[in-house]
Design a protein around this nucleic acid. Structure first.
Lengths: 186, 186, 186, 186
DNA sequence: TATGAATGAGCCTTCATTCAT
DNA sequence: TATGAATGAAGGCTCATTCAT
C-alpha cells in the first residue's frame, strides 16, 4: 500500500517536474509521507525510480493482456496493441512525459536500460506474433519493425509537441491506419 | 573559439554522462578550461546548454542545405532529408544520445521546448515541400506526417537500443525505403 | 533549541567578523553544527540573519519590560529606558558591534529596514510616553527627539571608538544626565 | 583624473548597492572603465575603498576650512561645524548612506577604523576649540562631547529613517539649536 | 514501522585578481 | 596605460542518505 502510494507520487512528480527536478522531498510530500520512508521501502531513491518504471511496464502488459481475448483475430490483436501503447496516456495524461524522462535516463543507467530494452522488444514481439499469422515470416518481420517504429515515432512527436488528449487520439488513429495498410487484405 | 570549445565539451559530456550528470566541472574539464569561463561566455550553465542545442540544430540545417542542390529532384531531396537526420550521428557517434537528453528536458524547460518545436516542424516542412511536388496536397500532408514519424521512430529505437553505426545505417535505409514506398512511382 | 544555538552563533560571528565576512560556515562552525542545518531551520542565510535581529529586538524589549515596574515614576522610567539601550551591551559585550552591522545593512535590505524602523520608533515612543507625564506635549515631543538622538549618538560614538565596558557606562551616565537635564525639576 | 573617476563611481555604487554588494564590476561599469584599471591605480579593491573614504574625509575638511573665515565669531564657527557635518548630504544626497557602510565596516577593518577615528576626533576637537573660547575648559569639554554626540545621533537617525532632504535640514536645525542652547548667552 | 532532524558532499554562481596583449 | 579574458577559491544552497527516537 505504502509502496504504491510512493510509486504514484513518483510518477506524478516526474511528470510535473521532470526526472532531474524530482527529489526525495517532491515525492514524499506528494505522498503525504516522510522522506525517510523511501529508503525504508526502496533502499534508495534510485530503487524507487526503478520500481516506478517497472510498475509502468507491468501496467502496459496488464493493459494488453486484459484486453486481448483468445477469440480475437490477429487484426484485432494488432489494433489492441496500438491502443495499449497509447492508452496509458489517455487514462493518466501526465504519465506520458515520464516515459520520455525514463528512456532518456536509460541511456546512462544500466538498470533502466534493461527495462527499456524489455519494453522495446515486447512491442516488436507482440506485433510480430500477430503479423506472422497473416503473412510470410520475412514480410511479418519487416511489418513489425516498421509498425513499432511508426507507433513510437507518432507517440514521440505527440509527446514532444505537448499534444492534448484529442491530438493523442489522432496519433493513435494514424498508427492504426498504418498498421492496417500493411495487412494483405488491404 | 572558446565558445565552440565549450559547446563541444558540453555535447561530449552530455553524451557520455547524460544531461543530469553533466556539471559545470564535467564540461570545463573536458574543455581544459576553468569553471568560471562558462558564465563569462554564456552567463550561466543553462545558457551553455541552450547554445549547444542551437549549435546542433544549425548543424543539422547546414548539413541539409549544403547537400541539397538546386538541380536535385524531389525524390532526391527526400532521400537527403532522411540522410541529414541520421547523418549527424554517423559523423559524431556520441552526439545522438545528447538529442534525446535535450528533448526529454524540453518537456520541462520552455526555452528548450521552443527549440525542439522548431526542429520538429522543420522536418515536417521539408518533407511536405518535396512531397507536394510529387502528389496532391492532401496526400502530401499525410505522407509528410507519416514520414516524419517513421524517421523519428526508427531513430528513437536505434538510439534507445544503443545501436552501433551499422545498425544506424540499416535504420536509415529502412527510412529511405519507407519514404520511397509513398511515392506515386512506386 | 537548535534555533537559539544558531542565532547565538550568528551574533557571535557578526560581532567578530562583521556581517560581510559572516558565512554559513562561520556560523555553523561556531554552533558545532553542519552547514545544511541553517536552511533546514531558517530557509536560507538571510532568514537566519533576520531571525537574529528579531531576537536582539525582542531582548531589548524584554529587558525594558522586566525592569520597569508599575510603581515606577516617570523619571525612573526614563532612566530605565536609557539603561536598557546600553545594557544589551554590558551583558554581552560583542553584541554591540552587531547592531551597527545590521543597521548599515538595513539601508539596502527592506526586511532589515523595517525592523530597524520599529526599533527607532520604539525608543522615541517610550521616551515620549514618560516625558508627557512630566511636561506639556510640545515640550515632551522635543525632549523625546533630543533624548533619542543623544542616546543613539553617545552609543554610536562609543561603539565606533571600540569603547570598553567602563567607557560605555560613562556614556550611559552622560545620557542619563542629559535626560535629567530636560526635566522641569531640574 | 582616472582616480577621481573611480572614486566617484565607488561612492555611487556603495550608496546605491551597499558596501557588501559593491564589486569591482559595479564600480568599473559606473566609471565606464575596465575592471583591470582598478588594481592598476589602487592595487586592489580595498585600496580603492580606502581612497574613497579618504576622499570623503578630505571633502569634509575642505568644506569646513573654506567656510570658516578668520573673522568668524566662535558661535558662528560652531554653526558652520554643524552645517559642514550635514552638508555633505545636501550636495550629494546618496553619499550619506556610504558613511554608514564605511563606519560599520570600520569595526572589522583596521585601516578604515583609523580613518573613522580621525573623523570622530576632528569633530570633537573642532567643537572643543570654539567652546573653549566661550566658557571654562571643563564646561567646554562637556559641551563638545554632548554636541558631538547630538550631531552624530541626529544624523544617524535621519540616515536610518531614509530621511529626505527636508527632514535632513530639520535635523540640522535641531542640532544648531542644541549647540546654541549650550552657550552662556543662552 | 515511521519520522524528520542532521549531515556533508556537490552543485552553480560570484568575484577579486592576474596577465597577455 | 588600459583592456578584458581567464582563473579558481569561496560562497550559498540543494539534496540523498543516515539514524536516534
Amino acid at each position: 500500500m505504502r509502496r504504491q502510494q510512493l510509486i504514484d507520487a513518483t510518477l506524478s512528480s516526474v511528470a510535473e517536474l521532470g526526472l532531474k527536478a524530482t527529489t526525495i522531498n517532491s515525492i514524499s510530500k506528494r505522498a503525504n509521507l516522510s522522506s525517510g520512508i523511501i529508503s525504508h521501502y526502496f533502499g534508495c531513491k534510485n530503487g524507487l525510480i526503478e520500481a516506478s518504471v517497472r510498475y509502468l511496464l507491468s501496467s502496459l502488459k496488464t493493459e494488453l493482456l486484459s484486453s486481448v481475448e483468445d477469440s480475437a483475430s490477429s487484426q484485432q490483436r494488432l489494433m489492441l496493441i496500438v491502443e495499449a501503447n497509447f492508452s496509458v496516456v489517455q487514462k493518466n495524461a501526465h504519465v506520458t512525459k515520464t516515459w520520455l524522462s525514463f528512456w532518456a535516463e536509460s541511456m546512462h543507467d544500466e538498470q533502466l536500460h534493461r527495462l527499456q530494452s524489455v519494453n522495446a522488444k515486447r512491442l516488436y514481439t507482440n506485433l510480430l506474433y500477430s503479423f506472422k499469422a497473416l503473412m510470410p515470416k520475412q514480410k511479418a518481420i519487416q511489418a513489425a519493425n516498421y509498425s513499432a517504429a511508426m507507433i513510437d515515432g507518432l507517440w514521440l512527436r505527440a509527446v514532444l509537441s505537448k499534444a492534448d488528449e484529442f491530438e493523442f487520439s489522432k496519433a493513435e488513429e494514424l498508427a492504426k491506419q498504418y498498421v492496417n495498410s500493411l495487412l494483405p487484405s488491404h
